[in-house]
Design a protein around this nucleic acid. Structure first.
Lengths: 162, 162
DNA sequence: CCCGAGACGTAATAACATAACATGCACCAG
DNA sequence: CTGGTGCATGTTATGTTATTACGTCTCGGG
């Protein structure tokens, strides 16, 4: 099955890996961050796969490429990428996915198809964000939010009907 | 430190454990579900603690009370309670917490204080739910949603200022 | 030149979760 | 009453995810 993972539309991403890495490179340079070889490679792996990968999946690929083979190698690279917004962690899956909208500061929302495993990253509107409202009324100061929904994507819904 | 975990207000919950268990009991009876001793005890434990507990924490308490001491004992009880809405899992913490609004069908949102570890369960308004909107525009059918925010609760914010 | 910060490597372990299989018990059809 | 079915529980073993701790290297500043 084709997980068809960008949003839920097909697309050709022959160039988008290189573009995204270049953008990350630039962004890190500007921010004084080190996009080291492991970190860059980890990002590439997630971009190439274009779906949510477990830390150990990433680790295996890194090890193949001559990097260390112990968990901290992957976790540290993923921590860096996550912390700086190039990658998101899907808590529900304990998995990581390259950010579909890097550069912009955002609170991503994920739609996880339980049929085909595709994960779409949706943009949220911060102005009438549910959580922002809640925070306002309760006096809670949000630093990070997790918005994830499991369900069935349009493609799989269509297939079901057949 | 007092985790002060119901919402972020103190309250006396000397009776609420018994009440909540009784309500669960009734609800199960109506629905033809078995609230067996392990399940009931697991629910009590979460209600008594009134904060998010890991499965192994619950397991340890169950074992003390003479139930099995192997992980599936806790996971099965928690699965049952979660499935039927008496307990929620906080994905971000890999932990479980008794539902603060049982009986009503709802999509809970959690506010997790990173300072005092308190977790508040907020009610969401399904009508202008962020995710529902996204689902509508993309044609995705949501079955379960996770809404969690990490940050600082009002009490800890107040303490910080001192 | 030396030092401190940060990045990477490895070993060991902790924390979280499930698979697979056996037993006991309630219920019901024959 | 007997045998079967479904469900809950228990155990063993294992799988998966994540972190701690510590050593080494490199680079830039003093």
């Amino acid at each position: 099955m084709d997980p068809n993972p960008i949003g839920f539309q097909h697309h050709d991403h022959s160039h988008c890996v290189a573009d995204a890495v270049a953008a990350a490179d630039r962004s890190c340079r500007e921010a004084g961050l080190q996009l080291t070889p492991v970190r860059k490679r980890a990002l590439e792996i997630l971009l190439e796969e274009h779906r949510a990968l477990g830390a150990y999946d990433v680790l295996a690929r890194l090890a193949e490429d001559g990097f260390g083979s112990q968990p901290p190698v992957a976790y540290r690279a993923l921590d860096f990428l996550t912390k700086h917004g190039f990658v998101h962690k899907i808590e529900k899956l304990n998995a990581f996915i390259a950010c579909a909208h890097p550069g912009e500061l955002h609170t991503p929302a994920f739609l996880i198809c339980t049929t085909c495993q595709a994960v779409a990253e949706a943009e949220t509107d911060p102005s009438h964000s549910l959580l922002a409202n809640i925070a306002e009324t309760t006096g809670f100061r949000i630093s990070r939010a997790v918005l994830e929904a499991e369900g069935t994507c349009p493609n799989c819904l269509a297939s079901e009907k057949r």
